[in-house]
Amino acid sequence: MKVITANFVTCAVKECKTSAASFPLHFHDAELEQQELDFQPEFIRNVLPRVDWDSLRITANELGFPSLPETKPEGDALNEEQTLKDLHRLLLETQVIEGKLVCGNCGHQYVIKEGIANFLLPSHLV
C-alpha cells in the first residue's frame, strides 16, 4: 500500500465518517519497502492540490519519516525538482507491506497483508 493511499481512505464504519478522529487512519507496526517507480513530476504537481497536507504529515510522522514542512509546497516550490522527488519517494515509492491501519474513532484495526489493506468489516460493525 502506497503512502499516498492513506490520504484517500478512512474507516469503513458508517458512524465514523462524521468524526474528525477517523481521518487519517493511523499506521501501527508498519513494515516499509521501497519500490522504484518512474518519476513523473507532473503527476506529483497535479495530485498535490488534492492531498490533505496535515493528514500526510501525521502519516509520515507515524512511519518514521523526517518532518514534512508545515505547509504544502505551492507555487515556485513546485518547480524544485528535489521537492518533487522527495514527495514522489514518500507518496508513491514507499509501500507499507505489513501492518495495521487503526481508526482513531472506533479503534477498529484494518490489516495490511502483502501490501493490500483489507477494509471488510466483521459482522458486528456492519
Partner: peptide, 23 residues
C-alpha cells in the same frame, strides 16, 4: 492482488456497501 500492479494507482479490499472513503 492482481489489480495492485497497475501504476500509479492503488488497490484495496473493500465492500461496496461499506466503502472506506470520506464523504
Amino acid at each position: 492482488k492482481i489489480a495492485v500492479q497497475h501504476q500509479p494507482h492503488a488497490a484495496v479490499v473493500a465492500d461496496i456497501l461499506h466503502l472506506p472513503h470520506r464523504d
